[in-house]
Simulated assay, not measured.
Amino acid sequence: MPRYEYRCRTCGDTFELSRPMAESSAPASCPTGHDDTVKLLSTVAVGGTSAGSAPAPRQGGAGGGCCGGGCCG
């Protein structure tokens, strides 16, 4: 189930709730009971290996790819 982050406009507290995507825009009360909250925009980082930013090596010879590298015959 996705987790959504909210901030209370009254007390400034930030908190997370796990709820179905269908309820992502439903109002949420802060843990101290205030109703004036706003859903924060969260970012998701997808990582790889330490060489994850390097482009994948080309396969198939100088032309790259199957049809340019001579592997199709």
Results as ranks from 00 to 15, higher is better:
G63Y: 01
A62W: 12
E5C: 09
Q59W: 01
T37W: 00
C71T: 09
T37Y: 00
S29A: 15
G12M: 13
G73A: 15
A51W: 01
H34T: 00
L41F: 09
M1P: 07
S25P: 02
R7C: 07
V38N: 06
G69N: 05
S18A: 15
R3F: 10
C11I: 06
Y6T: 14
G69P: 02
L41G: 10
R9Y: 07
C72A: 14
R7Y: 04
T14F: 12
S18C: 15
S53Y: 04
T37K: 00
G73F: 13
Q59L: 11
C30P: 02
G48E: 00
D35V: 03
R7E: 15
L40E: 12
Y4A: 04
R7D: 09
H34C: 02
A28N: 03
Y4S: 04
L40F: 03
R9S: 10
A62N: 11
K39Q: 09
R3I: 15
C11D: 04
G52L: 04
C8K: 00
G61T: 07
S50G: 11
G61A: 08
M21P: 12
E5D: 11
D35F: 00
T32Q: 14
R3P: 02
A62P: 06
R19T: 10
A28R: 04
G68M: 11
G33C: 02
P2R: 09
P57Q: 08
P31Q: 07
A62E: 15
R9T: 06
A26M: 06
S25Q: 13
A28Y: 02
E5I: 14
D13I: 11
E23M: 06
G70P: 06
T32F: 07
P27G: 13
S53F: 04
G47I: 07
C66G: 11
R19Q: 12
A56S: 11
G12Y: 09
R19H: 11
G48T: 03
D13C: 04
L41S: 13
M21I: 12
P20R: 02
L40Q: 12
Y6L: 15
V44L: 12
G47W: 00
L40P: 03
S18I: 14
T43N: 10
T10Q: 10
A56W: 04
V38S: 12
A22E: 08
R3C: 09
A26E: 07
G63W: 01
G61E: 09
E23H: 08
C67T: 11
T14K: 15
G69E: 02
M1E: 09
Y6D: 13
Y4M: 09
R3A: 14
A26W: 03
P55V: 05
P55E: 02
A56C: 08
L40R: 13
T37H: 01
Q59V: 10
M1G: 11
H34V: 01
S42W: 00
L41W: 08
M1N: 10
G12L: 12
L17A: 13
G73K: 12
P20V: 05
S50H: 07
G47V: 07
M1H: 10
E16F: 11
P57N: 06
M21S: 15
G52M: 03
L40N: 11
D36V: 14
C67F: 06
C11T: 08
T14N: 14
A54F: 08
Q59P: 00
C72Q: 14
S24R: 07
G64L: 03
G33R: 01
